[in-house]
Amino acid sequence: MVTGIDCSKDYFDISVLKNHKVVFEGRFNNGLTGFKALLVHVLGSHITMEATGPYYFQLARFLYENGQKVSVVNPLVVKRFSQMQLSRTKTDKKDALMIARFTAMTNPKEWAPPSEEILSIRNLETYIEGLKHRKGMLYNQLHAFQAAATLSEELQEEIKMELGSYERRILDKEKQIEALINKTYGELSQNLRSIPGIGPRSVSLLIILTDGFKMFESYKKVISYFGLAPRIYQSGTSVSGKNHICKMGMGPIRKVLYMAATSAIRYNDACRELYGRLRGKGKPHKVALIAAVNKLIKQAFAIAKTGTVYQVQIS
Results as ranks from 00 to 15, higher is better:
V2K: 02
S15R: 10
V16Q: 09
H20I: 04
K21R: 15
V23E: 15
V23W: 15
V23G: 13
E25T: 14
R27M: 09
G34A: 10
F35S: 06
K36H: 15
A37M: 15
H46L: 08
H46P: 03
A51Y: 10
T52S: 11
T52Y: 11
P54K: 02
Y55S: 04
A60T: 12
F62C: 10
Y64G: 01
E65F: 12
N66L: 06
Q68Y: 14
V70E: 05
V72K: 00
F81S: 05
Q83S: 13
M84S: 05
R88S: 03
T89G: 01
T89M: 01
K90N: 08
T91N: 01
F102P: 02
F102L: 04
T103A: 12
T103E: 11
N107P: 03
P108L: 01
K109F: 05
A112E: 02
S115F: 13
L119P: 04
L124R: 08
T126F: 02
T126Q: 00
K132M: 13
K132E: 13
K132C: 07
H133C: 05
H143S: 02
H143N: 00
A147R: 14
E153F: 12
E153A: 12
L155T: 15
E158M: 03
E158F: 13
K160Q: 12
E162S: 07
E162K: 09
L163M: 11
L163A: 08
L171D: 11
L171P: 02
D172F: 14
K173M: 09
L180Q: 07
N182G: 15
T184H: 10
G186S: 13
G186N: 08
G186T: 11
E187N: 06
N191F: 04
N191G: 12
R193N: 05
I195N: 10
I198T: 05
P200N: 14
S202M: 01
V203A: 05
S204W: 04
D211N: 15
G212I: 08
E217R: 14
S218N: 15
S218P: 03
K221N: 14
I223A: 04
Y225M: 12
Y225V: 08
A229G: 01
P230L: 01
R231M: 15
I232A: 03
Q234M: 12
Q234N: 13
G241A: 07
K247A: 11
K247P: 10
M248Q: 13
M248F: 05
G249A: 03
G251M: 02
P252R: 08
P252W: 04
I253P: 00
R254A: 10
S263V: 08
N268K: 01
E273G: 00
L274G: 04
L274H: 09
L278D: 08
G280C: 12
H285P: 00
A288F: 07
L289M: 15
A291H: 01
I297Q: 04
Q299S: 13
F301S: 02
V309N: 06
Y310E: 06
